[in-house]
Design a protein around this nucleic acid. Structure first.
Length: 680
RNA sequence: GCGCCCGUAGCUCAGUGGAUAGAGCGCUUGCCUCCGGAGUAAGAGGUCGCAGGUUCGAGUCCUGCCGGGCGUACCA
């Protein structure tokens, strides 16, 4: 508005004549700040004259600030919060039923820190949508079949039959360990060759020592051509391929020689200078030695067996495909061991589901979808397996959706086989309008593919499917790998966090004991864990650091819980029931409000809007920020304004404000799935 | 190569096109005879990756670069 007025003014005065557009604009910009202030002042005068109901109208720096009668607003707001209680912030009912699929845990595999982010997000997004007014249908999708299950059961039958712990509660976790071992066995050759490749690429000392090492290898009757091959590959920093080796045990013979060299390098403490043009090493000599050592004990025994094991796993897969009764029975039994554990984890974290989908249940429907796609020419067999060449089908020039394999060449099912069927089922069998998948962002291309294939097959609803992709959880030392068994297990982290909370309670609140102390330790520990998972945008990678998770100071759940506990304590000491406070809410006298009271009231007032916005954006983060702001505003108020010692009518008004704050904090925390303790 | 994401204080992160860019951690200095100190007051700390553009106004939107992460046909 100001710019138009200024431009008009310039033209009127003839000052813009003969000037270029740019020069006019410069003149306009120069006048801008002053003009804005003038206009703001004029608007303020105008409003003040005509609207006496506003408590104040002021022009400031080009803005018009309008203030209201805070006391009246406060009475109305606090009354509304107290009367609506747990429903304060809840939006008007909406017609669309929303399914939220999340917490896709696997049986036969341990739940780790990475899964925790998914569960926390899924639970809070579900709560958020419900609070915004949508009927929600939470669902989970359990990975109870697939390669990981087959590998686990192969390893169990082959090496551990009858060794399972007698405690049924421990068996799920134990199975996860068996799975990790299966991976170590099956990946053994690859892990060894990967290390040799790494040494060739980033360890110049190792490469210079290659002649000496290979001379030793020759002494151990190694095949001449293999030695030459190793030499060439190492010098040129290339991958060693096992099918290029003539003598199958040449690597086991070579291994001790490699180890001697790595030990020498690890013991040499003189700092190494990276030469110009050489890649920066990603590992230290000690780490490289550790990787060698991890493989060394099993080298002689395992190396020769890996090929046979792989064949056994394939056969195990076929036993599943044939539905061999003994094998299916074993699957069923072990599956239940894991399910016991999964149900407990869900209960601990407050994840409830209306539907439990399982991969095993959609294998056959998935096969039917594949047959249908093949029959209709949407899918084709390429390189021996059914795929959908999506870009080609859509006539896209640029690679976009690429190609989706929908069944393995040996006829076993893939994740895609099952998701194709499940996606249809969700809409067709469960009467939902909106469907959300809470899954790691690394699978976004995959979901685009699945949805697009269904669209190609004429299933139009697939176009509206929402993949809520969040960034993954990494560790300070790098990516999580459940295959290597390096991922921190959920239960260990939980125990650490709850244990720490308990220690702090014992130190800070020795009066709290017994069952109450244990309960609060749980609420604070788990709450803190959830908060760290949620208080980061889903577009950001979380680097999980246990020390940080164990820190309960500052911007963290306990800060908010503490504010809630403080508020609870004040109300308790006032010896007024919630009903009694509510009864007074109609005629509270908020007079002479302190700045901290105003700030607190303003925060409380925005809660319903925060819910709507957070729900529209699927962002629990906004609620974590919000409850923190409220807790902060409450603490300011707490320090600035005495409640119990104040005289009437301030005392009653402030008590009601404390009650309203407590309610709002509890409601916000509930959306995050975090408990609000009365004491801590 | 192509696609997606990230880049804001020493570190970890907020920031809805709008006023002087904010928190926490860490560091420095204060506050418990007072409703619970898991708290609180203050201080130091910023070329919002770089360069253009749109706009009265850009950390925010657009384009191009730079740096990092992830994905990219029989893993899930």
């Amino acid at each position: 508005m100001a710019s138009e007025l200024i431009a008009a003014g310039l033209a009127e005065r003839g000052e813009a004549e003969g000037l270029s557009k740019k020069e006019v604009k410069r003149l306009v910009n120069e006048e801008m700040p002053d003009r804005s202030r003038e206009i703001a002042a004029a608007v303020a005068d105008h409003v003040r004259a005509r609207h006496p109901e506003f408590a104040g109208v002021e022009a400031a720096n080009g803005y018009v600030n309008i203030s209201f009668d805070a006391g009246a607003m406060a009475t109305r707001l606090v009354g509304e919060i107290l009367s609506r209680g747990a429903d304060y912030g809840r939006g008007e009912s909406r017609p669309e039923r929303v399914m939220v699929e999340h917490s896709q845990l696997n049986t036969h595999k341990a739940a780790h820190i990475g899964h925790l982010r998914n569960i926390c997000l899924g639970v809070s997004v579900t709560n958020l949508l419900a609070a915004a007014g949508y009927p929600t249908v939470p669902a989970t999708y359990i990975g109870d079949i697939g390669r990981h299950v087959i590998q686990c059961l192969w390893c169990y039958e082959r090496f551990h039959r009858g060794q399972e712990p007698s405690d049924i509660l421990q068996r799920g976790r134990w199975l996860g360990e068996v799975y990790a071992e299966a991976n170590r066995r099956l990946r053994f050759r690859k892990d060894a060759l990967d290390l040799l490749k790494l040494l060739a690429t980033e360890d110049p000392v190792f490469v210079t020592a290659i002649d000496r090492m290979l001379k030793k290898l020759v002494h151990r009757q190694a095949d001449g051509e293999d030695v030459a091959y190793l030499l060439g590959r190492t010098i040129h920093a290339q991958e060693i391929k096992e099918d290029q080796l003539r003598q199958d045990d040449v690597i086991p013979r070579y291994w001790p020689i490699v180890g001697e060299q790595l030990r020498l390098e690890a013991e040499d403490l003189t700092p190494r200078v990276v030469e110009e043009g050489q890649p920066e090493p990603t590992t230290t000599p000690a780490e490289r030695l550790a990787r060698w050592e991890a493989l060394a004990p099993d080298m002689d025994d395992w190396w020769g067996q890996v090929v046979g094991w792989e064949a056994e796993v394939k056969e195990t897969f076929q036993r599943w495909e044939r539905k061999e009764p003994a094998f299916v029975a074993l699957w069923d039994e072990t599956r239940e061991w894991s399910m016991v554990e999964l149900r407990r984890i869900f209960a601990e974290l407050g994840a409830h589901f209306d539907h439990w989908f399982t991969e095993s249940a959609v294998e056959e429907p998935g096969r039917a979808v594949v047959q249908d796609l093949l029959a209709r020419g949407i899918a084709e067999v390429s390189d021996g397996l059914p795929v959908v060449k999506i870009d080609e089908k859509l006539g896209l020039e640029q690679e976009t959706y690429r190609t989706l394999p929908i069944l393995r060449s040996d006829g076993t099912t893939l994740y895609a086989t099952k998701d194709l069927a499940l996606t249809r089922q969700k809409y067709e069998d469960h009467g939902i309008d909106i469907s959300i998948w809470v899954v790691d962002v690394r699978q976004s291309l995959y979901f685009d593919q699945v949805f697009k294939v269904l669209e190609l097959a004429g299933f139009e609803k697939a176009a509206e499917a929402i993949h809520l992709g969040y960034e993954f959880v990494a560790l300070p030392e790098g990516a999580i790998s459940s295959r290597k068994g390096t991922a921190p297990i959920y239960e260990d982290i939980r125990d650490a966090v709850v244990g720490r909370a308990r220690t702090i309670i014992e130190e800070k609140n020795p009066d709290l004991t017994g069952e109450a102390r244990d309960r609060v330790a749980w609420q604070v520990g788990i709450g803190s864990l959830k908060y760290t998972m949620l208080a980061r945008d889903i577009t950001k990678v979380v680097v999980f650091d246990l020390d940080e998770a164990l820190s309960f100071d500052g911007h963290a759940a306990p800060y908010i819980q503490y504010a809630h506990a403080r508020a609870s304590r004040i109300l308790e000491r006032a010896e007024l029931s919630p009903d009694a406070i509510l009864a007074t809410a109609g005629d509270l006298a908020f007079t002479g409000l302190e700045p901290s009271e105003l700030t607190l009231l303003q925060h409380l007032a925005t809660y319903p809007d925060e819910i709507q916005r957070a729900a529209a954006e699927y962002r629990p983060l906004l609620i974590t920020n919000y409850v923190y702001e409220v807790a902060k505003a409450f603490n300011d108020f707490y320090h600035a304004c005495p409640v119990l010692q104040s005289g009437e009518p301030t005392r009653s008004a402030r008590l009601a404000l404390v009650a309203a704050t407590r309610q709002t904090l509890a409601n916000g925390l509930a959306i995050l799935g975090i408990d609000a303790p009365e004491e801590m």
